[in-house]
């Protein structure tokens, strides 16, 4: 008996919170933070799944999530800085060049 279900439950809630925040906040930095929250949720889920299956693969893959998060933060924030320099705003809605 483990606490895997609880971990995954909390992870799911974190993920949903991240999604909701990503959808509703307009500040690019906060949106990135929301994606980090989603990552946290996923991490918890991975750990939980690993526990459930009784192996360490969940934790190992979790480390890759960390890598992706780091990469994403590095590149994403660089882009944010660049965008901010161009327009002087962090408003996501100001960047809509792909509007059809």
């Amino acid at each position: 008996m483990t606490t895997a279900p609880q971990l995954m439950f909390i992870g799911a809630i974190l993920f949903a919170l991240g999604v909701a925040g990503f959808l509703t906040r307009r500040n690019l930095i906060i949106m990135f933070l929301c994606t980090e929250i989603m990552f946290q949720g996923i991490l918890l889920n991975l750990v939980g799944m690993g526990l459930m299956r009784g192996n360490l693969q969940g934790q190992a893959v979790g480390l890759f999530v960390l890598v992706v998060a780091a990469v994403e933060a590095g590149l994403g924030l660089a882009i944010v800085v660049m965008l901010y320099r161009r327009r002087g705003t962090l408003d996501a809605e100001k960047w809509s060049l792909m509007r059809g």
Partner: peptide, 14 residues
């Protein structure tokens, strides 16, 4: 930005 829709989406997901 559209807090109601976003919350609805988050709620359905959770």
């Amino acid at each position: 930005r559209e807090p109601a829709t976003a919350m609805l989406a988050g709620f359905v997901l959770a």
